[in-house]
């Protein structure tokens, strides 16, 4: 007797979604080029993390938002096959529309209950120009929206950190302030390695509805991620 009981086996999907601000201000001082470079450099790191945990099926997508929002990579793509086409910057900052697009994909279905908590990374350099609150509400109405790992990166000092903090929804986690290309690269690398690794762990956490984000421990940023103000260009 060796017939295994039950149906088909499968690893657990982990959806990772980049949400990138492509408004006109991102064209200033090379911000959009730096973002493109940082994400491209992060892909091999993500592939390494995924290879180290074959029980998590890391699936990557990306949304770009400026005047409106649309999927830059619409299909959940195995990280081994993920490629980044450069974004360009133009238009305003319709962050709310991007959040609404994410919310649609966090519903069950298309998500499954057995998935690992998704990782949402919101990157912005400015003020939302649409009703971001409605988009955020739509995200938080989804169980997977509330339980997603929500990370925000503020590019430059004009970013609306208050809005990004509301997206994170956890007072213990602050938006990551990237004021130069080097810090942006380090934050993107941290999200795509340490955070991804933590989210792909099956370790259980005690139910704690009072503490947002308690279901996935967020690793502490390495000291080297911060840089001196003298290096700031944004």
């Amino acid at each position: 007797m060796n017939m295994r009981p039950g149906g088909e086996l499968a690893t657990r999907p982990l959806h990772f979604i980049w949400m990138a601000d492509c408004s006109g201000s991102m064209a200033v001082d090379g911000k959009i080029q730096s973002l493109n470079t940082a994400i491209k450099e992060a892909i091999p790191n993500m592939q390494t993390v995924a290879d180290e945990n074959p029980n998590a099926q890391v699936l990557v997508r990306a949304i770009k938002f400026s005047s409106g929002a649309q999927w830059h990579v619409s299909q959940p793509t195995e990280v081994a096959d993920f490629k980044w086409d450069d974004l360009t910057a133009e238009g305003v900052t319709d962050m709310g529309r991007a959040l609404s697009l994410v919310a649609e994909q966090l519903a069950i279905p298309p998500m499954t209950e057995r998935a690992l908590p998704p990782v949402l990374v919101l990157i912005s350099d400015g003020q939302p120009t649409d009703d971001y609150a409605s988009g955020l509400k739509a995200v938080m109405e989804q169980p997977w929206g509330r339980k997603a790992v929500r990370i925000a990166i503020a590019i430059g000092e004009d970013a609306d950190t208050e809005v990004l903090q509301r997206f994170i929804g956890n007072p213990e986690l602050k938006p990551l302030q990237a004021n130069n290309p080097e810090s942006l690269v380090k934050y993107i690398k941290w999200v795509s390695t340490a955070v991804l690794k933590s989210a792909s762990s099956p370790a259980s956490q005690t139910l704690d509805s009072a503490t947002p984000g308690a279901n996935v421990p967020i690793p502490v940023l390495p000291e080297s991620a911060s840089s001196s103000a003298a290096d700031d260009v944004w």
């Binding site: 908590p117 339980k147 139910l207 308690a214 279901n215």
Partner: peptide, 18 residues
């Protein structure tokens, strides 16, 4: 409530209620 890695637990306050 048992969703997204979170679980009720013997170590939680008032665990008997869960």
């Amino acid at each position: 409530r048992l969703f997204a890695n979170e679980t009720t637990s013997l170590c939680s306050p008032g665990a008997w209620r869960d």
